[in-house]
């Protein structure tokens, strides 16, 4: 169920600002990689380019052997890469079940019309991310930030990805909710899912990743085992303010 994600010499400029600066890295099948860096370092922008929501200025992105850099977002999702958003993007006026349904739909209007919703699968995904049965009929307006992040996870999972990009999945969550999402990520890792995870909560992130990539101002400054990356002088300077215990 897994695939290799490869980013090569990626550059993204917003006017005069270089948000991604000659970025290259690979996430091997079944691997889980943490992407860390201070606010504005360019983590989300990398996700947006992998998904095709922002077109890169130059560079390539591959899923397995195939270059996906020129494909539309839905076409990339069909190739097996999917993301959550830092600011959750629910459909506010439809239910949790219907939100998940949108993620489950095939990209074919004919099939949308002729085949009914898979309610069992909707329920299964909702329960897997930690919703209760009763939440299925609630609308996002009634949900907490934790629930909205769960919904992001569920809709992302619904697209049946091989590689999941998680953007600040722990932000604004309670300790209990962090545990729920962490357990889900661990379970998916055991099943062979490939992850690229952005998180400011390093304590929650550390057990979920095999290695880390640190970036600052769009540039990769360190890559390797989590403890080594965190110990790196450049990382400490840019990210941890030169010391402190994360």
């Amino acid at each position: 169920m897994s695939a290799r994600l490869q980013v090569s010499n990626l550059v993204k400029r917003f006017g005069g600002l270089t948000a991604t600066n000659d970025m290259s890295f690979t996430v091997e099948p079944g691997e889980s990689v943490g992407l860390i860096g201070p606010n504005g370092a360019g983590k989300t922008t990398i996700f947006s380019q992998i998904m095709g929501e922002h077109r890169q200025t130059s560079g390539q992105i591959h899923m397995g052997e195939q270059e996906i850099s020129a494909l539309s977002t839905p076409a990339r999702i069909r190739r097996g890469v999917s993301r959550t958003y830092q600011v959750p993007r629910p459909f506010p006026e439809i239910t949790v079940a219907e939100n998940i349904r949108v993620g489950l739909m095939p990209d074919s209007v004919w099939q949308m019309v002729t085949r009914g919703a898979d309610r069992d699968r909707e329920r299964e995904l909702a329960l897997a991310v930690g919703f209760a049965e009763a939440d299925l009929d609630r609308t996002p307006a009634e949900l907490s930030m934790g629930d909205l992040r769960k919904l992001e996870m569920a809709r992302t999972l619904a697209t049946d990805p091989k590689v999941m990009l998680l953007d600040e999945v722990f932000a604004g969550l309670t300790v209990g909710e962090i545990a729920t999402i962490s357990a889900l990520v661990q379970k998916l890792r055991d099943q062979g899912m490939t992850f690229l995870i952005v998180s400011h909560d390093l304590k929650a992130l550390e057990p979920l990743i095999d290695r880390a990539i640190a970036i600052d101002r769009g540039t990769k400054i360190a890559e390797g085992a989590y403890s080594e990356v965190i110990a790196d002088a450049g990382v400490r300077a840019s990210y941890l303010g030169g010391g402190g215990d994360a």
């Binding site: 999917s82 958003y85 629910p90 949108v102 009914g116 809709r155």
Partner: peptide
């Protein structure tokens, strides 16, 4: 027709077009 998943997709499109695309659906086709 609007009670099928197509109708749900159109609701979703009106609420957040980027998220529909981010759910793997071609919005221009919808």
């Amino acid at each position: 027709l609007m009670r099928t998943r197509f109708g749900t997709a159109l609701w979703a499109l009106g609420q957040n077009e980027e998220a529909v695309s981010g759910s793997g659906l071609s919005t221009i086709r919808l």
